[in-house]
Design a protein around this nucleic acid. Structure first.
Lengths: 181, 181
DNA sequence: AGGCGTAATTAACCCGGGTTAAGTGCGATG
DNA sequence: CATCGCACTTAACCCGGGTTAATTACGCCT
């Protein structure tokens, strides 16, 4: 089964806070399985602005599809928000395992289907929800599993700037700590 | 191989302009392979607003991942923009073919990986690009394959309203036909 | 030909988010 | 303890997109 391949050919990596698993532009052909911790996958704009694509929590898998399947470079990077442990496996290893063993193939299909499902949902949120609605959804579904995210990161995840997030929080009465003169 | 399963268990559907392949809320467990024509996959908001998720051209496959894998309902619908021909195959058929035959499994993996790659790109565009940038990208990459799309549909694909699209087009000097008094 | 319905454009106004800058609180560091 | 830096908040202003409504153009139907 696939677990055996992952155990044999994969290796555990420990990421300190702020450490990059890989950065935008890299040629990483690895798939990473998050075992513990918290990481963020993000795009870095030419102007230095960061947009967070995915908040990664244990149980999730990540890899740049374009880098994996088109011999391209990673269109985004992954950085640890908390100390994290991930298992890195070359995508080619998964593919060859799937090419030789039926049950491994099923598991790869499951992983890809799960990835597609998550992306489908994210696409819906970005396309159909307002920033405020996305924040409320974030509070309900992501925040419980990522309590250590900064407001900056939350804003980058929602696709807005920190001041915009602050305004939304203010409207909901969840700020008001510093009393600006 | 998978083609045989698709030929045997799938069936061709012909969609007239405006016809729905399936609508939001359906329990469709089919995957559709576009053979000819042009279709759109879209979310319908409670207020009746349409947001187009994907423009479907020949060679692409579509299906609601949440409906396929979580026994849920389709989160979006698919409608023909031009007269189209699609081949419908139950997802369960693909899965069982992939469970019995290694080469079929590889093909299913290819289909899912391609889907994930497309979604990854779309996610990037929605998260990082402005409406204007998305329109320019649309002109370069989608328009050539979908010349019959209305401005309404283009706007819905970009996530904006027709007036907003008109303003963008005006800025680029690509309008000016009707001279509004 | 005349009339209707719809798509596309434009205008006017509003609102939400971006930008910039300033102020506040807090933790790390010396 | 004092200072520095950074995250967070707020304010002021601008700009782009939403909303609504009016106008034009065009296809379709009778």
């Amino acid at each position: 089964m696939l677990d055996a391949i992952i155990s044999e050919h994969g290796r555990d990596l420990t990421c300190a806070v702020g450490e990059n698993l890989f950065v935008q532009g890299d040629r990483s052909d690895f798939v990473y399985f998050v075992k513990a911790g918290l990481l963020k996958a993000s795009y870095l704009g030419a102007d230095g602005r960061e947009q967070i694509k995915t908040i990664l929590t244990p149980g999730m898998a990540i890899g740049s599809m374009t880098a994996l399947t088109s011999d391209g470079r990673c269109s985004f990077g992954v950085q640890a928000v908390e100390e994290s442990i991930v298992r890195a496996v070359p995508y080619s290893m998964l593919r060859s395992a799937a090419a030789e063993d039926l049950s491994s193939a099923q598991e790869v299909i499951e992983i890809l289907a799960d990835l597609a499902r998550r992306k489908e949902r994210r696409e819906y949120e970005l396309l159909c929800l307002s920033a405020e609605e996305r924040y409320l959804l974030y509070l309900k579904e992501v925040a419980p599993r990522a309590p250590s995210l900064s407001q900056m990161d939350i804003a980058a995840y929602l696709g807005i700037t920190p001041p915009a997030l602050s305004r939304i929080r203010r409207r909901h009465g969840m700020t008001q700590q510093p009393k600006h003169e």
